[in-house]
Amino acid sequence: MSLDADLLLLLVIGIDLFIGSTGRLGARIRACALQGLVLAALPLAIQGTGVLTGGERVLHTVLAVLATFLLKAVAIPYFLLRAMRQSGVAREAEPEHSLHLSLLLCAVLVGLSFWIGAVMLPPPEAGSSPLGVPAGLATLLVGLYLTVGGRTELTQVIGYLVLENGVFVIGQRVLGEFPLVVELGVLLDVLVAVMLMAVLVAFGHRPEGGSAGDGAATPAGGAR
């Protein structure tokens, strides 16, 4: 309905692609934070000034926006960055040449979600952005790919966060409003998971299978 929402949703897709194409952990975490910020702004863009004049739901929406912002854009990224610094895991998540493949795969996932959005689901009701479902699906699928394909705990958790952002966008599109209860529940789960992970990484108790040079992936063909 509004261009702002379209642009924000495009930004969400763009961040998905960026996360899929960069090998730097720090950049991925910051991009995640930016995505959280965009998600927090999304209800404002969709409902416009209605947020402030909508009667009893105003408080509800404003609280939800604030909570989303604090958790997704501030708290979780902060923990992740701290964990990254303290654990001293390699900053490069993936070897370079596999990043081309990763980017192309993410592009395919984005295409797939546009296709699903256009073909499988009913057209969006008049007035809502046609990008909502594709953007949410794309975020969800890219997150799934990052979670499954991640080589270290950190990359997996980042993937999980992205996936969760996708759920957030879709929920918002499907329910047409801020799915506060569901959302907060999931968010708290994620928060706990991230803190647990941060503790694990920071104190060196890495679970089985995540050791043996996983983090120290060397950039192939790097030194030129």
């Binding site: 370079e96 980017l103 546009f114 046609p130």
Partner: peptide, 27 residues
């Protein structure tokens, strides 16, 4: 770095491809 340039350009291709998808999604 020279070995990073392809990623930059592939990124541009992907951005343009998303643009095409958006064009067709928006009618």
């Amino acid at each position: 770095r020279l070995s990073r340039v392809p990623q930059f350009l592939i990124g541009a291709c992907v951005v343009a491809a998303v643009g095409v998808l958006v064009l067709f999604t928006g009618g």
